[in-house]
Write a protein that binds this DNA or RNA. Structure first.
Lengths: 116, 116
DNA sequence: TATACGCCTTACCCATAGGTAACCCACTTA
DNA sequence: TAAGTGGGTTACCTATGGGTAAGGCGTATA
């Protein structure tokens, strides 16, 4: 059974969940990793046009700290680092799907002030 | 059937959905209106401690522009304005519930580097 | 005349997210 | 000796979101 929420606690918890996803690149990273995909740093860098190394590292670190992404370092030279989702990270996929479906269901803007 | 998404378009659409909810007060406002509740400006102001009139007006306008909130003005003096969710706004409730459930399912942080 | 009410708007300030560019490290190959 | 390789860090700058304080409007009441 779920927690009991007041408007304030519910809002705070949703905000906390969203904070994990905020940042210009995190969702893109997640969608590149959904479905059990494993990617190296340099692969992500190549497949995400426009991202800088700083932002890639920063956002990956944040996702890792939040428990969505697992980081595996291979002690080689040159270094090799792999990124993949944790189970919990993967569990976000259907939630985002629900969000996408909600958005698809948006009615067209009313022209005359009434809803259609 | 849903749209077909690439990592980029999916991320962009999720971000667009989240942008509608971003802002320090919007979720609180939404949770005060979920379930068909109808509230006046001054009621919201009183029941949301810390919100300024500027932010209350601004965030309500944004939610209205995004089609989540319906604003009803009664041409009286002093003015009376009521806010309530649109059907689409109300449809967000189960989505946010899913997000809350996802958050509740987060495993405790691993102490030794492995996931539990 | 002045004050109060309900619902805002405007002017101004600051903290943070994100951008660019350059640098670092350990090792291998030329 | 010098350059390349993968995976970052650091310094610095700007744009935006949110904060406070105050003003405005149309009418009724004292």
């Amino acid at each position: 059974m779920g927690k009991a929420y007041t408007p304030e606690t519910a809002a705070a918890d949703v905000a906390a969940a969203m904070r994990v996803l905020e940042g210009r690149w995190k969702l893109i990273l997640l969608f590149h990793l959904f479905g059990g995909q494993v990617r190296r740093y340099s692969e992500l860098e190549k497949s995400i046009p426009g991202i800088s190394q700083k932002m890639l590292a920063q956002q990956l670190r944040a996702l890792e700290a939040d428990g969505l992404v697992r980081r595996t370092v291979y002690p080689e030279v040159p270094p090799k680092v792999e990124y993949q989702l944790t189970d919990w990270g993967q569990a976000l996929c259907p939630v985002l799907d629900a969000l996408l479906s909600w958005r698809e269901g948006k009615p067209p803007a009313a022209v005359d002030g009434r809803e259609p």
